[in-house]
């Protein structure tokens, strides 16, 4: 035995060192695989919500806000979800470095596969309505998420510009056909709707209305949109 091999064997015996069991490495590798799949899936959910937010966005109202289309795009992008998508692409990259044998493949190939996987799966989730459900559920239940939608709230809190959004309140008993909206400042508005047939609305729903302010309590609707 050489001096070093002698010392190594002594260390192994004295410190009672044993090789880690095979299952430990199998579980670790499996965990990295699962994390990779989870990263693609959460990335897909993010993309589904991004598609939902962008396709349901009111792209036609930027002129009412006295903004250029470019400024309006910057104001409208769902930054939280874009950051989420990038973060999970990074997680997929981090995983790539740790999954056994994957270093043989190009990092660009693996990250591209993970991003394209997220986009494809995200597209499917969007078409199946999952993106909308997530956006609505988070908006209704998570206060922090509502804060992230602050731009949307601001946009629909400009009655002078003809943009009013809010929650439908119970109508007065004597005029049950009337629509009452509570806006983002807590102000209640009575909505006039000459010759308009709105979609089915229930108390507690949130809607967006394009029209014009008649006075401090009345708003004439030209168009109703779902929130």
């Amino acid at each position: 035995m050489t001096e070093i091999s002698d010392k190594i064997i002594k260390d192994i015996k004295e410190k009672n060192i044993h090789p880690k069991p095979r299952w430990f490495f199998a579980v670790r590798n499996l965990a990295f695989w699962l994390l990779f799949i989870a990263a693609i899936f959460v990335g897909a959910l993010s993309f589904a919500v991004i598609l939902d937010v962008l396709t349901n966005h009111d792209w036609d109202i930027y002129l009412r806000m006295h903004k250029t289309f470019g400024q309006y795009i910057l104001l409208s992008l769902p930054y939280l979800w874009i950051v989420c998508l990038i973060f999970f692409a990074w997680i997929a990259y981090y995983d790539f470095v740790h999954i056994k044998g994957w270093y043989r493949h190009s990092v660009y190939l693996i990250v591209s596969i993970s991003i394209l996987g997220s986009l494809f799966l995200g597209g499917l989730l969007f078409y199946s309505g999952v993106g909308k459900k997530i956006d609505h559920a988070l908006d209704a239940r998570v206060p922090f998420y509502g804060m992230m939608n602050i731009n949307k709230r601001k946009i629909w809190c400009q009655p002078k510009e003809g943009l009013l959004g809010g929650e439908i309140m119970p109508p007065p008993l004597e005029t049950p056909e009337r629509i009452i909206i509570r806006d983002c400042h807590g102000r209640e508005w009575s909505i006039e709707r000459p010759n308009m047939k709105p979609f089915l609305m229930r108390v507690g729903d949130r809607i967006k209305i394009i029209g014009h302010e008649m006075d401090e309590m009345h708003f004439e609707a030209e168009e109703f949109r779902r929130w």
Partner: peptide
């Protein structure tokens, strides 16, 4: 070097036969 040998020993079951 010593650290390398001890670490290799602990991870022998992770040695990839490929």
């Amino acid at each position: 070097l010593q650290d390398v040998f001890l670490s290799a020993y602990k991870n022998l079951n992770d040695f990839d036969q490929d």
